[in-house]
């Protein structure tokens, strides 16, 4: 009998935990690490339903949930409690960056018109510009965009890749974009550090081919409240 009571309260705790997890992530502005902001209100409504369900389970004599289900549903709650919330970053780029060819086509769908002021361009707009126009036309345009630092093994010490994910509905479909940046202080920044790139567009010649690149400096910043870009 004792055990049944315990299992019943555990069931209620897990249901409550799921609802509380969403409310907590929403309140601490972390829900957008996982999903497109257009689903925020839907999720808050869901969280309220789950919390009400937990309350209902507590007030009525709802039966205990079988242990295996409870154990499995504890996983997302345990993740929320124990694993530091982190946006997609340098750690997954290798899995989530599309090859050059494909991002070409992705971009063609995502963004078409760019403003004249290149200082207002995000990384998504920069990548679009690079694909759409002649690199010579972009030369010396001013850049001021944000992203996280990551590197590939072949990069010289003063060069980094500044990347950002584009998310269409949730992190499952995140696609990494990046631009090469040559900065005198490039070596000072660890992978995943968020930076603001300030510089100009200067294509570089590497191994005989012209590669888009920004030359300038990196300024360390806090992670933006919305770490992803939305097409």
């Amino acid at each position: 009998m004792q055990r049944q009571v315990l299992e019943r309260w555990l069931s209620i705790a897990v249901m409550f935990g799921l609802g509380a997890m969403i409310i907590f992530k929403w309140q601490t502005n972390r829900l957008n690490l996982y999903i497109h902001p257009r689903y925020t209100s839907l999720l808050v409504a869901t969280a309220i339903v789950l919390l009400l369900a937990a309350l209902g389970m507590a007030l009525t004599k709802a039966p205990a949930i079988p242990k295996r289900m409870l154990a499995l549903l504890t996983i997302p709650v345990a993740f929320a409690l124990l694993v530091p919330a982190r946006p997609l970053g340098a750690n997954l780029v290798s899995g989530k960056a599309l090859n050059a060819n494909s991002s070409d086509n992705l971009l063609a769908r995502w963004k078409t018109n760019l403003s004249d002021d290149s200082k207002s361009w995000t990384l998504l707009e920069w990548t679009t510009a690079v694909r759409q126009s002649d690199l010579a036309v972009l030369r010396d345009k001013q850049a001021a965009f944000e992203g996280f630092v990551y590197r590939t093994p072949d990069l010289p010490a003063d060069e980094v890749l500044v990347g950002r994910y584009v998310v269409t509905c949730c992190t499952a479909d995140g696609t990494a974009l990046s631009l090469r940046v040559k900065a005198s202080n490039g070596a000072d920044f660890a992978n995943d550090q968020w930076v603001r790139v300030e510089g100009t567009f200067v294509p570089a010649e590497i191994n005989g081919s012209i590669v888009p690149q920004i030359a300038g400096t990196l300024v360390s910043i806090e992670m933006p409240s919305s770490p992803y870009l939305y097409p």
């Binding site: 799921l18 969403i22 992530k25 829900l31 690490l33 996982y34 999903i35 689903y39 839907l42 999720l43 409504a45 869901t46 789950l50 997302p76 993740f79 929320a80 919330a85 982190r86 946006p87 997609l88 997954l92 509905c169 949730c170 992190t171 499952a172 995140g174």
Partner: peptide, 12 residues
Amino acid sequence: TTFQGIFIEALP
């Protein structure tokens, strides 16, 4: 992060 993305989005 990817797990939470899929899971949280499917919950509603």
